[in-house]
Structure formats: C-alpha cells, structure tokens
Design a binder for these strands. Structure first.
Length: 308
DNA sequence: GTCCATGTTCTTTA
DNA sequence: CTAAAGAACATGGA
C-alpha cells in the first residue's frame, strides 16, 4: 500500500492522537515481524510514552520519551490504525499497542530539548499539523499486515537511516543531478531504489516520469540537468498532489482513521494500460515490465529521444 | 489452476 | 566492481 504520500498520511492522521500518550499493554501476536529478532518489545516499551511520530522514506518512526526509537514499515498490505481500546482485532493483526492520555500533571513537561529529530526532513506540506498534546481518550494502535512484507524495526537511539537516500520533497535539483550522473540504470529503476531517493514507489515513479515526459528506460546518466530539474519538479508536484488527496488506495491502504485515500482516480498512467493517454489523447498507455515491476507510460509523450 | 498486487532483500547471471 | 534479472517472502483477489 504505501509510498511516501500514504505513509505521511498515516502519520498525519495519527500524530495528534498519540503524541504524549503513555504506552500500556502490548499484544504481539507474531514475534517474527520484529527486527532484530531478539528484541524484547514489551520490555522496551514498558512505561514509556510517545515523544514524537514522523515519517522518513516509507517508515513510520516512533520516538519514545527516553529517545529510543522504532519504526513500522507497512510493506505492501500493512495498515496502522487507531482503534477503541476494546476493538476486536481484524485478521492478521500482529501488534496492538494500548495508549492512554498523559496525566494532567505531566502536561507541559517537555521532552528533552535536542533529542527531537535530527533527521526530520519533513516540510510544511508533508507535516501540516502542529503537535497537539493532551489528547482525549485511551486508544489502541493496531498493526495489520496480511502479506507480512512489513514489520516492526527496533532502532534504539540511532536514526538507522544511513541506507536511505534524500527525501524527495526537499531534494534540490543539483543534488539529483549529481546522484543520477553515477548510474546507467533505467531512470524508473533508479527512482525505486531507496538508497538513491527515498519514499518513491511504483505508482509515483510512473506518475512522475509521465509528468516530466521522460521515458522510463532512459539511463540515469543520459538525462540532461534540464530534464532532471523537470523530473525533480514533477516528483514534488505528483507527491504533493497525492498528499492533498491523502494517498492512493488500490485495495488495502487506509489512513490512521481507517479511511481510504482519494488519489487513485487522479493517476494518469499507473494501472491504466490500454487507456488513451490523457496528455496527447491519441496514443494508448503501454505497460512493460522493468525490474520485475509493471511500468506504465505513453511512448509518444515520454520519448527517450526528446531533447529537452 | 493462473496471474497479479502500493516493497524489500538476497542470489544468480552477465 | 556494476548492475540486470530473477526469485523469494505470504496472502488474497480477479
């Protein structure tokens, strides 16, 4: 389900409700979704409260009041929702975290200054809401993931993002030029590589390349700085627009309140093989397989020989 | 039964 | 060394 807009939407919809809450009972139904495998999650979370929640790449990062962190990755079919404390879990619920509002005597007691996110790449678009402390009622976070491609990853005090490329929403074109100069790989494949640029997945790679009018097979190092600048703009435009519509729901994705995203109907090429190209209105959207993934594009509008 | 799916990682091949 | 290609992970829907 989740690429940057979907993951950010989950964070946006959960953040106010869980910031400052105290962690209570933990139900871990499948220990094998936790990495590293020897992590004693219940012990690590006992008596802690949640100091921060943010997104990095496709990861939902929890920061505890002792500055330790873990993240949840939604994989392909994961969902993370806030439920009433007594809600019965749906199938494939792997983890439930019970949360209670902070006691009033703790309100106003801030977490240690300086421990808030050194890695916070979010900007105002992706993280519009200010943190609201002192939420209303107890709740339970449910992590559900039928395919189990997602999981829970314990970080300790490290940010654990050394393996991730820059955030696309704040990426400067000059940086992208530098990064792409060093790869001959097809641009579509490069965009999916999280060490090159973090947070883009199959939907938004196709949509951004269409928007930038770049053929998905174009080698990264063959793109002129001008076209890379256009690509960088297209990425921001597509992601920002998807964020405004609270992500794309193909079948599984829901936000923290269980609500589907509304961006799917705005897709111009993804999952639209055989439809008329919305730009030239003549040629049909093609689908090829690249790096094992479906890749949809208009061969006329996205011409690899195009000069500008 | 078949094929496909928003992701990541490991292995094999060139 | 680089990277392309394929398989694997696990489940469900068409």
């Amino acid at each position: 389900m989740p690429e940057l807009p979907e993951v950010q939407t989950v964070v946006n919809t959960l953040r106010a409700a869980i910031l400052g809450t105290r962690i209570g009972r933990i139900t871990l139904n499948r220990a094998d979704i936790v990495t590293p495998p020897d992590t004693d999650l219940s012990k690590r979370l006992a008596n802690r409260s949640i100091a921060d929640l943010h997104r990095r790449a496709k990861r939902i990062i929890f920061t505890l009041d002792n500055a330790e962190r873990f993240y949840i990755h939604l994989g392909m079919t994961g969902r993370l929702t806030a439920e009433p404390p007594n809600a019965s879990p749906r199938p494939h619920t792997h983890l439930i975290i019970h949360l209670t509002p902070a006691q009033s005597r703790f309100v106003g007691r801030s977490t240690k200054p300086g421990v808030s996110n050194p890695n916070d790449h979010d900007n105002s678009v992706s993280n519009p809401q200010p943190a609201i402390r002192n939420p209303q009622s107890p709740l339970a976070l449910h992590f559900v993931d039928p395919r189990r491609f997602g999981g829970i990853f314990w970080l300790g005090e490290s940010s654990g993002d050394a393996d991730l490329g820059p955030e696309p929403l704040t990426l400067r074109s000059a940086t992208l030029v530098k990064i792409l100069a060093s790869t001959k790989r097809a641009i579509k494949t490069a965009l999916l590589d999280q060490t090159i640029i973090a947070g883009i997945g199959n939907i938004y790679a196709d949509e951004a390349l269409f928007e930038a009018r770049i053929h998905p097979l174009t080698p990264g190092n063959k793109l002129s700085p001008l076209r890379i600048a256009r690509l960088n703009q297209a990425i921001k435009k597509v992601l920002t627009s998807a964020l405004r519509h609270r992500g794309s729901t193909l079948k599984d994705f829901v936000d923290g309140n269980g609500q589907a995203g509304g961006y799917r109907s705005k897709h111009k090429v993804y999952d639209r093989e055989g439809e008329k190209c919305p730009r030239c209105r003549v040629h049909l959207i093609e689908r090829i397989v690249l790096g094992g993934r479906s890749t949809c594009f208009c061969a006329t509008c996205q011409n690899e020989k195009r000069k500008t």
